[in-house]
């Protein structure tokens, strides 16, 4: 499935617009895990566990969105947007990752 943040597909003919498709995922509800993740960053200096989990969460949101588009019969998602919102609260630094775009079918 083709994913693009552009509004059109150059040299491609869009046959049908299926409408908006969304995918959401949450990250960082575990305060203790985040705490130890921070310590590891300082000690090892490698890519943080948190960053990896952020990537995983984004992938998850995108895959949910793709699944929804596929179920509609689309073969591309255009005008793709991904946003990260901190929900905060006593749940810890909970981040909501949202992926949404327009499901289309192109030739």
């Amino acid at each position: 499935m083709l994913l693009t943040s552009t509004d059109t597909l150059e040299k491609k003919n869009i046959l049908h617009y299926y409408g908006i498709v969304t995918g959401e995922s949450l990250l960082g509800a575990n305060v203790y895990k985040d705490l130890f993740s921070g310590i590891r960053d300082v000690v090892e200096g490698n890519t943080s566990k948190y960053e990896k989990e952020l990537q995983e969460a984004r992938k998850h949101a995108v895959s949910i969105m793709q699944k929804k588009a596929k179920e509609k019969g689309a073969n591309a998602i255009i005008g793709l947007k991904i946003s990260y919102d901190n929900l905060g609260g006593t749940m810890g630094n909970t981040i909501l990752i949202t992926a949404y775009g327009t499901a289309v079918k192109y030739e």
Partner: peptide, 17 residues
């Protein structure tokens, strides 16, 4: 389903074609 209401919901700035 929001996309079955006869309205195109699009994140793009145009509807091709």
């Amino acid at each position: 389903d929001i996309n079955d209401l006869g309205i195109i919901f699009s994140t793009t700035n145009q509807i091709s074609g």
